[in-house]
Amino acid sequence: MTGSTPTVDRHLTDRPPRAPAGLGIAPAESSRHGIAVASVERLGKRYGRRQAVDGVSFEVKEREVVGLLGPNGSGKTTILRVITGYLRPSEGTVRIDGFDVVRDGHQARARIGYVPENAPLYGHMRVDEFLHFMGRLRGLRGGALRRGIESARARLALEPVGDAVIGRLSRGYRQRVSIAQAVLNEPKLLVLDEPTNGLDPRQVIELRGLLRTLARDSAVLITSHVLAEMERVADRVAILLDGRLLTVHQLAGAGRGTSLRVRARADRADEVAVALSGLAGIGGVTREEPEGGLAGWRVEVSEAGAAPRVAAALCLAGIASVETVETASDLEELFLRLTASRALQ
């Protein structure tokens, strides 16, 4: 604490307006709207003498999906484990909905749903039995428990394997059970450590949808090795290297980085311009150098799903040929640059 700049946040940490433990009343600071569901402040974690995480600060706000990105061994799992209360921080503080994970651990953990790395499960239990057990651990009972299990099973398409012994499930189904367990009681913060591991493409897409749904009324913190996946689901991405936070990068939104190259006969350029102006979901159009009697445009697509629609409209009108160009994304470039520059030092 010595030598640190007294910021507003510091001030709050030093004298938190705490509610009496166990009454389930959130401290006053969390009642403000849009406030951080999880706030990590100067978090450090040592394993013996090895400093695995060092001075990491970031927040996850309501209705936000934050991604943690970093090479292997950069400390992602360690950070998630501290946030979820599995590991104790060596330095710094973590608060969930205003509750300190060390001092008010019980309250903090009650607000988190957690999908650990590699989906650890009780292999001898059946799927329904396991969900039932995890629900009861979270204090659910009776109707609430039944509804929680029903909706989790439906969301993760687990109905066909309700009676299956977990130990005999495939990797992807185990992963789904692990995710189902985490959403049983609509947590305020959902923490997922590489949740797309082992999922088939359809499940990856459905998980993306599920995360969006969940992010409507909770906050999501996720790690993944798949940059493209991260770009699709996250609003912001925190990039880690050797346990330090390099930057928190705001993503512009889904669909960024996709552009279309449109070509048409030069004499039909006007028709193309008209068609383009009448289409929704177009971010910007730049005219390219004509090539061998063909005029060219580069069309930036601004919203998710618009690219195929725009392409289809132009093609069907029979006036142009369209080529989709997946330009190297911001995130990919940023990540490679950041991690490469550090690696050289």
Binding site: G85, Y86, Y114, L121, L137, R138
Partner: peptide, 14 residues
């Protein structure tokens, strides 16, 4: 070893 301790200890139980 199986990692299930992580499930238990991150649940709201003492």
């Amino acid at each position: 070893r199986g990692g299930t301790l992580e499930l238990l200890l991150t649940s709201p139980v003492r």
